[in-house]
Design a protein around this nucleic acid. Sequence first.
DNA 1: CATATTTACGAAACCCTTTTCAGTCACCGA
DNA 2: TCGGTGACTGAAAAGGGTTTCGTAAATATG
Lengths: 335, 335
Amino acid sequence: MAGRRATINDVASLAGVSIATASKALNGRQDVRASTRQRVLAAAEELSFQPNALARGLLSGQTRTVGLLTSDSAGRFGIPVLLGAEDAFGAGEMAVLLCDARGDAIREQHHLRALLSRRVDGLIVVGESTNPRSSVSRDLPVPVVYAYGPSEDPEDVSFVPDDVGGAAMAVQHLVALGRRRIAHVTGPAHYKAARDRVEGVELALTEAGLTQAGETLWGAWSQRWGRHAAEMLLMSQPEIDAVFCGSDQIAAGFVEGARERGRRVPDDIAVIGYDNWEVLSTETRPALTTVDMNLELLGRTAAQHLFAAIDGRATPGVHRMPCQLVIRDSTASSS
Amino acid sequence: MAGRRATINDVASLAGVSIATASKALNGRQDVRASTRQRVLAAAEELSFQPNALARGLLSGQTRTVGLLTSDSAGRFGIPVLLGAEDAFGAGEMAVLLCDARGDAIREQHHLRALLSRRVDGLIVVGESTNPRSSVSRDLPVPVVYAYGPSEDPEDVSFVPDDVGGAAMAVQHLVALGRRRIAHVTGPAHYKAARDRVEGVELALTEAGLTQAGETLWGAWSQRWGRHAAEMLLMSQPEIDAVFCGSDQIAAGFVEGARERGRRVPDDIAVIGYDNWEVLSTETRPALTTVDMNLELLGRTAAQHLFAAIDGRATPGVHRMPCQLVIRDSTASSS
DNA sequence: CATATTTACGAAACCCTTTTCAGTCACCGA
DNA sequence: TCGGTGACTGAAAAGGGTTTCGTAAATATG
């Protein structure tokens, strides 16, 4: 640990100029003779001078820092968004101040105050699910962008995955493969994501002139539920030839359950998951066809939009980002 | 978005006092009449005044902010550490500035400069593996604590999981259950974690007067490798009654492979994993006994140590944090 | 050579808060 | 009435950088 850090004053003294000139030389401004600039730069190098971002921010009113307020950063969904955001910012000179509210509104308020007092230039709020959440943006002096979980307030800017479209895409793929008796197993009904995917399934089935094989089975987002659903479904609807699962966890469980009951995947039953959680989707046998929500892109887009909003060019509303079908062996066309 | 933010000047004017008095009233200092304090507080409330942390930090030299420099925040290991750190800080008033270097040394330097210029009070460096990494701490004006991946420099402060102890604990558990022919399947040899766990296995086996069933099988950290290893092992060492796997992924694959070859877990073969990655360890059948590295605690401890280091009370060296055996059905005593 | 015009540099103000220190005021005892 | 006390209050400086504006030197122009 070195002693006191060099200030621009030290640099100016060493270079034998005033601090005003030193500042201009360091920041590449006009009105500095080339030789003088050289001397200043050399002095700064020698003292390993780092401009104090606090002083700079105090004056300019810009900290080049954004806050990232998450409810569940450990979750499957917050992290990619975070990475995407960090990526978009990192290209420039932005830094990310991370706060995890752990789903607690009080703690969220607390973090919000801390971020505001640190004069962040903007805020990204990451939800733990796609369920709309209450807005934090009322009378905030900085722009806010919501990612993954949208704000209830339509005046806010939100970026969410297009779950309706993603589910429809999955079903269309099954239909294109010639599957006609398609079932749907998903998670808890209080998740908007689950309900949206139901809507997408209905849309695609109607479009293809089909009806769903049996009722939608609501359960948990787990392998356990996937296995259980396989048992139930193969009992009650033994003629199904495809299943769309609401998550890769459910799909992994379903594949296992189906195999134990002697059904081959994809030959007898094609299976599609959701999330493209690679530890499951690429490691099951067969590897899972699944819907990727492009969360990293979503995070990057949200961050880029935050830049725009900081410059006063915000586009209010909920922006739905397209999902992408990743085709693997669990829906290989039966040869 | 509101207009200009209120400063302490505005508060003082509204309350009809000087800014010095306002400051004292706001910060609970002496020498302010109760009625005056009331007026100031009311004014601050009305203007929703937030003290500017930049100005405060500029003066005090403390930003109450720490940097968290990670190489792989998406990884299984960085996140819990991050959460633990955020937890320890969150209790107080600290904020975390997150930077992900993506394993790139140039980018790391870049982030380091950005953090330093923002005058963080300290730094936590999170590795992507337990392999020692080059030190960033030389001549840094702030204290640094390494978490998960230790620094090569013994003068630095590092917190790492005790993989030797964790593996030994797992094997001791198997021995206590009466298993005698214990095999070991693990990941790539260039991971120190894998080599440490080999050491722990040897230690525990020697202690019990046993020798390992077959050579250690080195592979990848994947389910695929676990399944493959099960095939090989049950062929070459058909008499084994227990396997210690280097990760839950491997263990999950091994369980699957073993069952397909007609071996029952845990009756014929007991299986132990590593990491306690719940999506695998609790969802396999049977649920996996596994070693939990307590990463969140490790992160919290690292953060607490950083506090101590900021106060000048650092304890150099590599601190090994104990792991914990989580017993589930894959080692239930055969009845 | 005197004047106009650049060019290069420096003094000082500013951003916001905390803290020191000096000053005001009311009130007490003598 | 006066000095002494103690309780409050406010002016000013400090922290580190950027920017404006004034000024001196250097160069161009007549």
